[in-house]
Computed example of a mutant assay.
Amino acid sequence: MRPTVAAVHTAAISLQVHPDLVVTGARGTHARSDFLLVRVVTSTGVEGYGEVSATPLWSGEDGVSSAHFIREILAPALVGRPLVPVGGLELLMDRLLAGNPFTKAGVSIALWDAFARTLDVPLTVALGGPYRDEVPIKLSLSGDAAALDSVFRAATGAGFQAFKVKVGLGVAGDVARVSRARELAGPGAFLGADANGGWTRSQAARAIPALAQQGVSFVEQPVAPADLDGMRQLRNLGLPVIADESVFGLADLAALVRAEAADCVSLYVGKSGGPGRAVEMGRLASSFGVDTLLGSNGELGIGAAAQLHVACALPALSPEFPSDIIGAHYYTEDILAEPLDSDGRRVKLGDSPGLGVRPRADLMRKFQ
């Protein structure tokens, strides 16, 4: 007998970013995150876990709206339906709720986790992998002068050796910030720049050559998300261009590919609407010669585990650019009973079924 979805529970949680790692960029300051954890229980008693990691300033979603949509719209439609195929349940959620990819991704992660646990295989196997068992990672640096120095000390203290610097705040200040980051990191350290769409075309055209002289390896989202023509033109200035805010779903990715607007795409499990769709997008990108990496919306341990399994399920993950699977490194506490195997340089895949992680016991009691 095929398992069905028996229940969908949620638990709200809010965490403070480690004070020395607070990120300030062109889209604002990220000092605290509100999340919604999701638990799916099947008719056979298998549990799967998910995470809605949505920041209103960035995505327009938050834990309150996610809890309402899951409780009132998604859960009533999912309960009683067969767990397999998970893709069919994702299509059902699309028919019931427009937009809100991070909310639907939180449920999707839990459904995929339950499915993989039912099969008694790691999630990456259920997604078609693994093609690798560890993923190199990097951390964002932001701030100026003493603030940047403090962030760098905290980042290297956590083991990080690869970084991207938040820019898009004014060309002169951006160049100075990257110059200081290069001085701190040393000439051989991996260093990228992330503008979060904060530059105009003319600002980007001035900034990118100056950043290239600092040995920067890429520039991420240099101009506004919709300015694909501008991104294509900026690819001629000597640095690879990574698209982030320009690409949420498959339609965005197709437009980016047609416009030849980027060398690499930063995939999110949340932006994509779930793990299966993130893998689908990564495979499509690679078929057109566009690299992929796993970007971050400040995911917690469950979301970071989903990132890891997706990254390991991608046939082609960028060999040049580290991913942003930062998990508990970014926050003052971890939500997992057992942390991911991460030392700041890479995060390593385990062999437990599903995501291979569970929330702490005290958080389990919060599910409603």
Results as ranks from 00 to 15, higher is better:
196 N>I: 02
66 S>E: 08
278 A>F: 03
274 G>A: 06
181 A>L: 07
312 C>P: 10
135 V>H: 04
210 A>E: 15
82 P>L: 01
215 G>I: 01
250 L>F: 12
279 V>W: 05
288 F>R: 10
54 A>C: 12
310 V>Y: 04
26 A>Q: 07
49 Y>S: 09
52 V>N: 07
243 A>P: 03
111 L>S: 09
188 G>F: 09
341 D>K: 14
302 I>A: 02
32 R>E: 12
190 F>Y: 13
277 R>P: 05
43 S>E: 02
276 G>I: 07
192 G>R: 09
131 Y>A: 03
173 G>W: 08
85 P>D: 05
247 V>Y: 01
205 A>Q: 14
66 S>Q: 11
120 D>Y: 00
244 D>N: 11
254 A>G: 00
190 F>H: 12
313 A>L: 08
324 D>F: 02
192 G>I: 08
147 A>Q: 15
110 A>N: 08
298 G>L: 04
47 E>W: 06
142 S>C: 09
96 L>P: 07
365 R>F: 03
287 S>Y: 08
137 I>H: 08
204 A>M: 08
356 G>C: 04
297 N>Q: 14
158 A>Q: 13
257 V>Q: 02
220 E>D: 13
87 G>C: 07
63 G>E: 11
226 A>S: 15
168 G>N: 11
232 R>A: 14
192 G>A: 14
357 V>Q: 04
169 L>C: 10
46 V>S: 00
200 T>W: 02
107 V>G: 10
15 L>N: 04
364 M>L: 15
85 P>R: 10
50 G>D: 06
13 I>Q: 12
6 A>R: 15
101 P>H: 05
324 D>L: 03
355 L>V: 12
125 V>N: 01
339 P>K: 04
344 G>D: 09
8 V>I: 15
35 F>H: 15
176 A>Y: 01
21 L>A: 07
9 H>P: 00
219 V>R: 12
299 E>I: 12
349 L>G: 01
252 D>T: 02
347 V>T: 12
302 I>H: 05
228 L>E: 01
366 K>W: 11
43 S>I: 10
334 D>F: 03
167 V>T: 13
4 T>P: 00
11 A>T: 12
227 D>M: 07
138 K>T: 09
236 N>L: 15
211 L>I: 11
104 K>A: 09
189 A>G: 13
281 M>C: 09
232 R>V: 06
101 P>L: 08
235 R>V: 14
8 V>Y: 03
337 A>T: 14
93 M>K: 11
55 T>D: 14
202 S>N: 13
281 M>W: 02
360 R>S: 13
198 G>W: 03
72 E>S: 14
252 D>W: 03
101 P>A: 09
33 S>R: 13
47 E>H: 06
248 F>C: 13
151 V>P: 01
235 R>N: 10
162 A>D: 04
91 L>C: 06
150 S>M: 12
155 A>E: 07
7 A>K: 14
178 V>I: 09
197 G>E: 06
35 F>I: 01
156 T>I: 13
201 R>D: 05
126 A>C: 03
182 R>L: 08
29 T>K: 09
354 G>D: 05
271 K>R: 15
138 K>P: 00
269 V>W: 01
146 A>L: 12
